[in-house]
Design a protein around this nucleic acid. Sequence first.
DNA 1: CTATATGCAAATAGTTTGCCTGTTA
DNA 2: TAACAGGCAAACTATTTGCATATAG
Lengths: 142, 142
Amino acid sequence: MAESDTIDSKPLAKVLNEHGVRPTSQRETVYESLLQKRDHPTADEVFARVREKAPTISLATVYNCLDVLVQNKLVRAVNFERAPTQYCANLAPHAHFHDEAGRTLDIEMPTGVIDQLRDLLPSDFDVKHIEVNFHGRAPHND
Amino acid sequence: MAESDTIDSKPLAKVLNEHGVRPTSQRETVYESLLQKRDHPTADEVFARVREKAPTISLATVYNCLDVLVQNKLVRAVNFERAPTQYCANLAPHAHFHDEAGRTLDIEMPTGVIDQLRDLLPSDFDVKHIEVNFHGRAPHND
DNA sequence: CTATATGCAAATAGTTTGCCTGTTA
DNA sequence: TAACAGGCAAACTATTTGCATATAG
C-alpha cells in the first residue's frame, strides 16, 4: 500500500465523511489527537490533549466524539479490568497487551490466528468483533 | 477426574482455605451462588441472589468477597464494553461470547489456541492472563 | 485476644443526559 | 433553515472507602 493511500494522508474531514461521520472541528481534533500519538488514551486524557487545539471543547463532547468514531469504526474502544475505557486509532486487527505498569501495547495478530479463534464458535454464531487482551509484565524499553 | 475430586464436592470452607481465603459465611455464600448457577452475574445480581441466604449482607461486602475470590483465582472477572463487571466461577481456560441480547456464554478454548496466542508476544513478555471476548449474535435456543 | 472482615453510609470515578445555543449541509 | 452537534451542569451507575462493630483463628 502506497503512502498516499494511508488514512493519514487524506484531509481529516474527508475521512470522517467517508465513514458517515459529519465532520465538525471537535471531531476532527479528537480524531487527529488519536492519529498523531498512536497510543491508548482514556477520554480524560483525550480531553486534556485536545484542550490546547480546542480550548472550548467539553468533556461530554469528547465522549460524544469518541463514541461516534467508535460507532463508525474509525476508532476502537479497549476495556481492561478496573480501568477506564481507552481508545485506539489503529484499525489493523490486533490484540492489546496491558502492562502491570499501566502501559497498553498493540500486538499484531495475523489473520490465521483470528480465523482460528472464530473457528472456536459454531458456524451459526454471527461474530461481529473479537477482542484479545493480554495482561502481564512487559520488558522495559526506556 | 473423579467426581469426588471436583471443587463442588468439597466443603466450600475447605476450598476457600486451600486458596488462601479465610472462609467467612459471606464469602461462602457469594462463592456458592456463582458455583450453583454457572452463569455470569454482575455484582448487583450476586447481591440480589445472596440476600435470600444472607439477608444482612451488604453490597460493599459482595464487592469485597468477589474481589478476594478473583484475587485468589477462584473466580474470573469479565469485562465488556459499556457493561458492569461480570463474574464467572468456571476455572477452565475459556473465552466469552457476549451476545447482543446481553447473554454471556463460555466458549471452550483448547490449549493449542492459547499457546498460539501467547506466541504472538516476544518471549521476554511475562503473560499473566489472556482474555478472549467475542461479540456478536448467538442463535436463540429457548 | 488480635487480626481481619462486615455493614453502613458517604465519597468517588467514569460516563450519560437534558436543555438551550451554535454549526453544518 | 432544518437537522444535527456542542457546551454546561446535573444525573446516574458502578465501585471504593472510612469507620465502628462483629467474627475467625
